[in-house]
Design a protein around this nucleic acid. Structure first.
Length: 286
DNA sequence: CCTAGAACCTGCGAGC
DNA sequence: TGCTCGCAGGTTCTAG
């Protein structure tokens, strides 16, 4: 479940159902799921065994499980279709089950990484001094992080010679925003996705960040966005925010503000949804 | 250095 | 019925 609210829903589930348990055995069923663990699948399983899981953390769309009494964490990225599920041992194997982790306790459940498209995966890394897996040191803080620096983000926008949606999706500037929440925040802010970032004023940046935070918090409150069974929490349940989307997926439907039919435009191998009336294209579009 | 675009995967629904 | 095409919530590498 790709974007920040969906990943945070998963993190909370792991905190409740997986934290403080000791790994008995891990099993890698598809090598691609551990490709970011450069030492390979055998090394991954060997190093997990016998360690206790600490409190799960998250930055943007990445989450990680610290291994207590080590300086390492299991890093997880869900990619486009990854799921982390807590399942009873006897539950039938999912079609795209890639990794299984069993625990040394009598709770009767195991952790499963299921991923249809295999863009996601698990890997083990050393932590930096702030307790962050070293390979994601370049990922910016996310907008729900109390230490996110609004002013630094604004200055970064001004320096870029790019457009606003590209910047929102740039995980080294601001993390956790993906295609859905970018379109939602831009609709709320009445900004066209191809607005150049260089001309952003401080109030405009502040307003946009406010909308990013509002839409993510609203989604989080109802368990995230899921259009289908691919995006679920650790118990396999869907969130409800798809009912509250104002832009994403609403091609041809009336804008909820002005009634103008919403449009979809191919953009960066995906789509951008916007209201042609409320979100006017910049005069010089590149 | 920077930015834009393609590549990486599998499956589903629409259209022929 | 069955084929092909376009599309899907992300990241990363390459070309310019």
């Amino acid at each position: 479940m790709p974007e920040l609210p969906e990943v945070e829903v998963v993190r909370r589930g792991l905190e409740r159902w997986v934290a403080h348990r000791v790994v008995a055995e891990a099993e890698v069923l598809h090598p691609r799921a551990v490709r970011r663990h450069l030492a390979g699948a055998d090394d991954f399983t060997h190093r997990l065994k016998g360690h206790r899981i600490g409190t799960p953390s998250r930055r943007g769309k990445y989450l990680w499980l610290p291994l207590e009494d080590t300086n390492q964490s299991v890093l997880a990225h869900l990619g486009m279709s990854g799921q982390l599920l807590v399942q009873p041992h006897e539950a039938p194997e999912e079609k795209h089950l890639r990794i299984r982790v069993r625990f040394a306790d009598g709770l009767g459940t195991e952790l499963r990484f299921v991923d249809q498209r295999t863009f996601g995966g698990l890997s083990l890394h050393d932590n930096t001094l702030d307790g962050l897996p070293d390979v994601i040191a370049h990922i910016a803080r996310d907008p729900l992080d109390p230490l996110f620096d609004d002013e630094a983000f604004h200055q970064a926008l001004r320096r870029k010679r790019s457009t606003i949606k590209r910047a929102l999706l740039d995980q080294s500037l601001i993390s956790g925003v993906g295609n859905i929440y970018a379109d939602e925040a831009l609709w709320r802010a009445r900004l066209h996705y191809e607005r150049p970032t260089a001309g952003f004023t401080r109030p405009r940046t502040a307003e946009l960040l406010g909308h990013v935070r509002d839409v993510m918090n609203a989604a989080l409150a109802v368990g995230g966005t899921s259009f289908d069974s691919l995006y679920v929490n650790v118990n396999g349940e869907s969130g409800y925010f798809d009912r509250s989307l104002d832009a994403y997926g609403r091609e041809g439907l009336p804008c909820r503000r002005c009634g103008t039919p919403m449009r979809r435009r191919p953009w960066m191998n995906r789509s951008s949804y916007f209201c042609p009336q409320c979100q006017r294209a910049p005069r010089v579009s590149s």
